[in-house]
Design a protein around this nucleic acid. Sequence first.
RNA 1: UGGGGAUUCGCCAAGUGGUAAGGCAUCACGUUUUGGUCGUGACAUUCACAGGUUCGAAUCCUGUAUCCCCAUCCA
Length: 752
Amino acid sequence: MSEGKDFLRTIVKEDLEAKKYKTVVTRFPPEPNGFPHIGHAKSISINFGIARAFGGHCNLRMDDTNPTTEDMRFVEALKDAVTWLGYTWGENLFFASDYFPKLYEYAIKLIKLGKAYVDSASEEQIRQLRGTVTQSGTRSKYATRSIEENLNLFERMKNGEFKDGEHVLRAKIDMSAANMKMRDPLIYRIRHAHHFRTGDTWCVYPMYDFAHCLSDFIEGITHSICTLEFENNRELYDWVLDTLEPEKTRPYQYEFARLNINYTVMSKRKLLELVNGCFVNGWDDPRLPTIAGYKRRGYTPEAILNFCEQIGIAKANSMVDVAQLEFCIRDDLNQKVPRVMCVLDPLKVTIENFDSNKTEEIEASYYPHDVAKEGYRKLPFSKEIYIERDDFMENPPQGYYRLTPNQSVRLKHAYIITCKQIIKDANGKIVEIKVQYHSDSKSGDDTSGIKVKSAIHWVSGRHAKKAEIRLYERLYKTDTPEGLEDLNPDSLRIIKNALIEPAAIDEKPDERFQFERQGYFYADPIDYTSEHPIFNKIVGLKDSWAKKTETKKPATKPTQTKKVVIEGKADPMSETELTLFSRYTNELGLNHEIANILARDTQLSNFFEEALSVLHSPISLANIITNEVAREFKTNETIQITPNQVAQLVKMVDDETISNKIAKQVFEEMLDSKASPDAIVQKKGLAQISDPTIIIPLIDEVIANNPDNVAKFKAGNTKLVGFFIGQVLKMTDGKANPSVLNELVSKKLNTQ
RNA sequence: UGGGGAUUCGCCAAGUGGUAAGGCAUCACGUUUUGGUCGUGACAUUCACAGGUUCGAAUCCUGUAUCCCCAUCCA
């Protein structure tokens, strides 16, 4: 939870430090039209997490501006998700629909400002007139209506005098804007629909772009964090707030990349399709990436939150490996849950030399030695037991550690057994094995001296309980699933007759267990009863044996195809550009790259020509202009610096008063202070230090203080020269002459 | 095709002119009564590509490529 670990926290931190806001206020603003999924969890952890980290607060706001898709049921699911993840909104549960009256007033204000109009064109016409991404649009003929007429019409829209789609309210912005969102966006539409909260009060409903920013403003949000697809909406967000509330401090929008996970679908539409089409069993199906699904499956909020923290926040579209999530739940449960034995695919084992009437009770710890928890149960041991079918092999492959005709094995917590006889049915399937146990090999008290390769889990036939185990695998078989055709047909496997040791049911020391050697399981919160226990598989244990045996087969190496880069062609130069180019290269001796940049950019070439008339130092001038000056022109239309000033600066570099490095620093300074370069150098004492008698002692000092790096350098890490130069430069505030310094450092290090 | 974003290891991701963090995955060894956990080590001479500026570039400049978003009366 550190403060500056991602770009959002960095922004918040800076804003707070700059006193832009007194306290940070964020919001989690879902639309209640579907169940929240792990992508929402990321957003929740960002918004609530930032608020918590900076001592602010986060509102839970239902963005319910579309009456046709939203439902109270989803509101409850959203609240559940936030609570389950461990966050609280306190008093701050809001609904955009609560702001409908205020929003309506804002719309009227916009009309009065002459910045909104009622458009009576049809939906189709509006689309036509909007233009395309390359062609600008045309403003509707209704845009010329008077303020009074607009006011009147809008009020009648509100009063329900018109049918759906007859009119809309539009912001009057710019029909030729390159950003399509700014082409007179719709801000209100007529909807004669029943809203789940406001009922039939309203006939007009605000659109997202109008409602969202104003809702943020009304709530005093400082940082409005949303996903990347809203980047284009930001300009409109700013426009609405700047024209309606120009004086007040207001929220700003920031975007991050939404979460994608491989083998998983996250879109509301696809999730809805799965649920409604009964491809899964409801919104809380454990195979679904919904919060309800993870909860039902047995995931912990800690694991989800930890996952959200691990994946980070950035602006690049990305696809997280589902293995990362699986790691998080294993990692969490490993420290928490009791171990218990459960046989999923039982094979009967009769211990020939064990008394058939006897039951031995073994004290077995619920936790392994490396988990700092205590607790144990009594484990019954008797003549007939069951082991996992694949823990015995008649003809084992190399490296198989478990029971074979020639290899003894330990029964976990109990005795070592040795196979004596294999019994098969008519089809050759093994139905039972007969073994002898070594009575002097009891766990914790073993004097047998027998060495075994592994310990396997087992249950006592007489005492074991029957359990239903629901085994879940990934819902999709492809890593980037598109549709139903990518569904994994084996995503759910139900084992009706697994055998579990009695304590797990009778004592029920927890809801979640590790079934020894298999994975983590969760007593299904809905269907489980002690008469008919049902466990969901949360996640399997890592299984390096399985991995080893399967990777043996396909050894096909993916052929590395070297990426072929197609170099696009630059536009040919115009006549005048060509003339300039040849003058720069031939007369002034500039290199082709620099000459090219200058020749193609009139702003830069004018600047250059002017500077050149002051100081005839074409190469130095051209370098600084195509690099530093160009950057400023890129971000600002006009810049404060004059060609004359740049010439002054270059002059100081040319006569070695200052270094190139310092020149860049001075340049930055000139941008802010508008002072002349000489004055800056004077004032700050930036003249460069070239005298070796001053520099050498500093180098010696750095070398003396960093013996490790000296050693690394000697070992061949020559890049470390940079480190030493950097250190000396730091000591001299960047004033040491870098060329001289470079030479001296290299010499010193090589003669040490 | 206009505009807006992005590009650092198999997957995430720090880094903003001075030694390419960290996690997942993978591999090896050690510990282990879970083929788990844990521990140790290995894993980017290079940051989409090509030039340029600089003593020094992932970072600054120019150009190119690729991917994502925008033309719902959805959010």
